[in-house]
């Protein structure tokens, strides 16, 4: 038993190969397994309840397994992209390309909303342009592996892919626009007066075993935190799956309702929850006939902009810059909502 537990440390590569094989094998048998469970329950397989239960017993392990795998891999990838390295990559670059880089790096750099301010100041201090810093700050929470995995597992790769592309575009363009507005003077004075630092990098090189441990840590932290939300989301999905969906939401969140997108975004801006917490709501809204663009715009505005984050950012930004930030990002999300509704 002890040898088994020490495997990730002693033979990290071997461990990863074995773990991936077991994962793949398990993933293959999820459907038969869920059928087997339902067969052994005292319900009729073809009844509504039977079909709902089968969906639940298939979807729950599927989503949790996908999430665990992605979080594990991203945890290891994250260990290559510390905030310090990201800053060194972005420092001194010109806008445009740097906005694209910042938005993309936002996906792979580990980020917690409570780190937003230290990160923000750290970037600005090292000479990363303000607009580029914003590109990073918008993309990091909004386009993340948890949101993408859940969208993929529950609504398919097209929805996940569109979310990724649109999210990146919002981050790149909003950051670029804020950069164009030359709002450096709307940083709080103490931020502007901080001594400039050079973006140096003391590279503590990690071994593969260390990175595997980082992966474990993020699985513990993230999957441990989000699984209840996922269960609720799937339970809602299963309930709807088994019973006939109604078009309850279609009348006011459907495609034909032109004001649905801006209103959803306005409601979503002050709200705050993480990517997993919003999934049950997304699931329920979609199943009740709400348009995908409207729902995804709502989801983006909840994750990307929130009242608690604004309160923290207020310590470093003057009100006008905060208002500009909210305005530019919210407009971007509204636009994306309309585009989604138009193309899907």
């Amino acid at each position: 038993m002890n040898r088994l537990f020490s495997l990730p440390n002693k033979q990290p590569l071997l461990f990863l190969i074995i773990a991936a094989s077991i994962w793949l094998a398990l993933y293959q048998v999820l459907i038969p397994l869920s059928e087997l469970i339902v067969q052994n329950l005292p319900v009729e397989r073809n009844s509504r309840l039977g079909s709902a239960l089968q969906f639940f017993f298939y979807d729950t392990p599927k989503v949790l397994m996908l999430l665990t795998a992605v979080v594990m891999v991203m945890g290891m990838v994250n260990s290559y992209f510390t905030p310090e390295r990201t800053r060194a990559l972005l420092a001194g670059r010109h806008e445009g390309v740097a906005n694209c880089m910042a938005a993309s790096l936002g996906i792979v750099t580990p980020f917690c909303s409570c780190s937003a301010v230290p990160l923000f100041i750290g970037f600005v201090q090292a000479g990363v342009p303000l607009g580029v810093t914003f590109s990073f700050l918008i993309s990091a929470p909004m386009v993340n592996e948890v949101a993408l995995t859940l969208l993929f597992a529950m609504f398919g790769w097209k929805v996940a892919g569109l979310y990724l592309m649109m999210g990146l575009m919002i981050a790149i363009i909003s950051g670029w626009v804020i950069g164009r507005l030359n709002m450096e003077e709307h940083l709080e004075d103490w931020v502007r007066n901080m001594p400039k630092v050079s973006a140096t990098l003391d590279d503590a090189s990690l071994t593969l075993a260390d990175r595997v441990q980082t992966g474990f840590a993020s699985v513990r932290e993230i999957v441990g935190k989000v699984w209840p939300y996922i269960l609720v989301g799937i339970a809602i999905g299963a309930g709807i799956h088994g019973y006939v969906p109604e078009d309850f939401m279609a009348s006011f969140m459907g495609k034909d309702v032109w004001w649905a997108v801006p209103v959803s975004v306005l409601i979503g801006v002050p709200m705050y929850t993480n990517a997993a917490g919003i999934i049950p709501i997304v699931e329920a809204l979609l199943a009740k006939g709400a348009a995908l663009g409207t729902v995804l715009a709502f989801m983006m505005s909840v994750i990307a902009l929130s009242l608690p984050e604004m309160i923290i950012l207020r310590k470093v930004l003057k009100p006008r810059l905060i208002a500009t930030f909210i305005g530019v990002v919210a407009s971007g999300i509204i636009l994306v909502g309309y585009v989604f509704n138009a193309v899907l």
Binding site: P83, E84, R87, P110, C112, C114, S115, P118, L119, I121, G122, F123, M194, V197
Partner: peptide, 9 residues
């Protein structure tokens, strides 16, 4: 906090 020159908390 920023006086310690860190970027993540």
């Amino acid at each position: 906090i920023m006086a310690y020159n860190i970027m993540s908390t």
